[in-house]
Write a protein that binds this DNA or RNA. Structure first.
Lengths: 202, 202
DNA sequence: GTCTATAAGGTGATAGAC
DNA sequence: GTCTATCACCTTATAGAC
C-alpha cells in the first residue's frame, strides 16, 4: 500500500466520520463526504465499495470509543471509591474529547439491535466483576445496600446524558451560553463522583 | 370538518408519529406513512402539504411530551423531598408510556438548535424557582451544599438515560432479557429517588 | 489511482380522473 | 376526498477514459 493510498484512505475515513456523526447514516450524503475529503464520489466507491460498508467502519470505531475498555479502572487493589473516581474521570475525559459519539452511537443502534448484540459479543464485555465488588462493599459495610445494576446504570447515566442532551441542557439550564455549559461540564468529574459517593458511602 | 376528515387526519398523524419516531426525519418515507395509515401518498400531501410540515407537527407533539409542564411538581407547599419524589414519579411515568420519544427528540434536535430555542421560548420554561428551592433547602440545613444546576441535571439524567440507551442497557446489563429490563425500569421510580435523596439529605 | 459522465433506482410532490 | 399515473429531482453506484 503506497503512501498516497494511505493518505487518501485516511482522508476518506476522517471525512466520513465527520459527516456520518454529524448527520447520521440516513442524513449523510456520499457527495458531502467526497467534498469533505477533497475527492469525488467515484473514488469513494473505489476505496470503500458502498455507503453501508463505509458506515460500518465509522460506526465500529465510534462504538469502541463509546464503550472503551475502561472497566480496567475497576481492576486492581485500589480503594473502591478511588476506582470509582478513576472510572468517572477516564470516561468523562473520553466523552469530553468525543462529545458527538454517544448520541451518534445511541441513535444508530436504536434500529439495529442485531448488530449491537454481535458487537457486544465481539468485545466480550462482562461487568459482573463490578457487581461483585459492589456487593462486597455492601457486605463490608463500606456502602449502603443498593442494587448493583441500578448503581452502575446511575454512574453511566450521570456521565453520558449531559452530552447527549447538550442542546437541551444548553437551552434550558444556560439559556444558550456555550461558555457556561462548558464550564459546568468541566466541573462534572468531581460533581458526579461526589454525588454518587455521597449517595452510597456509609 | 366532517367525521371522515377527522378520521383520516387522525390516522395520518398516528402513522406519521410511528414512522418518524421509529426512523427519524431522514429515514422516514412518505410511502411508509401512507401504508401505515392505509391510504396513498397523494392523500398525504392533500392533508399535509409536505413531509417537512408533517414532521413539524409530529415533532412538536413529541417535544411537549418530552418536556411536559411537570415543573408543577415543584410548586406547592409540600416537603422538598416529597416534591422531588413526585417529580420523578410523574416524569418516569410519562417516559414509561412514551419510551421512544426521548431519543427521537434528542436526535432530531441535535442538528436544529434554532428550532429548539424557538420552542423553548414558546413554552416559556423557567426553572429558576427550582434552583431557589434547592438553595433554600441548603440554607435550612436540610440538604448538603450542591450546585443546583448539577443537581437538576443529575435528576433528569437518571430518569431519561436508561430509556435513551435501552439497547445498550438491555445488551450489557441484561444480556438481551427484555423482561428483566422492564422489571428494572419498574423499580426505577423508587431507586432513582432513593439514590438522589441519599446523596443530598443531611 | 483519479477523474467525468451516466446509469439505475428511489423519493417527494403534483396533475387529473372519479 | 381519494385514487392512479407521472414528473422532476436526488442519490448511490458503475463504466470507461486518462
Amino acid at each position: 500500500m503506497s503512501e498516497k493510498d494511505r493518505n487518501t484512505e485516511e482522508k476518506i475515513i476522517q471525512a466520513a466520520e465527520k459527516v456520518f456523526i454529524e448527520r447520521g447514516m440516513d442524513g449523510a450524503r456520499m457527495q458531502q463526504i467526497a467534498d469533505e475529503a477533497g475527492i469525488n464520489k467515484a473514488l469513494l466507491h473505489y476505496y470503500y465499495r458502498s455507503k453501508a460498508k463505509l458506515f460500518a467502519i465509522v460506526f465500529k470505531t465510534a462504538f469502541k470509543t463509546f464503550m472503551p475498555n475502561l472497566l480496567g479502572a475497576f481492576k486492581g487493589d485500589d480503594d473502591f471509591f478511588t476506582k470509582l473516581r478513576n472510572f468517572i474521570n477516564t470516561y468523562l475525559g473520553i466523552i469530553e474529547k468525543n462529545p458527538h459519539i454517544p448520541s451518534f452511537v445511541l441513535h444508530e443502534i436504536s434500529h439495529e439491535s442485531d448488530r449491537l448484540i454481535m458487537m457486544l459479543n465481539e468485545l466480550n464485555i462482562n461487568i459482573d466483576f463490578i457487581f461483585e465488588q459492589v456487593i462486597d462493599e455492601i457486605e463490608k459495610g463500606h456502602i449502603r445496600p443498593i442494587d448493583p445494576k441500578h448503581f452502575f446504570l446511575n454512574v453511566v447515566s450521570l456521565c453520558i446524558f449531559p452530552v447527549v442532551a447538550k442542546p437541551m441542557v444548553l437551552g434550558i439550564l444556560f439559556k444558550g451560553d456555550e461558555k457556561a455549559y462548558h464550564q459546568m461540564m468541566g466541573e462534572r468529574k468531581t460533581q458526579v463522583a461526589d454525588f454518587i459517593i455521597h449517595s452510597i458511602k456509609i
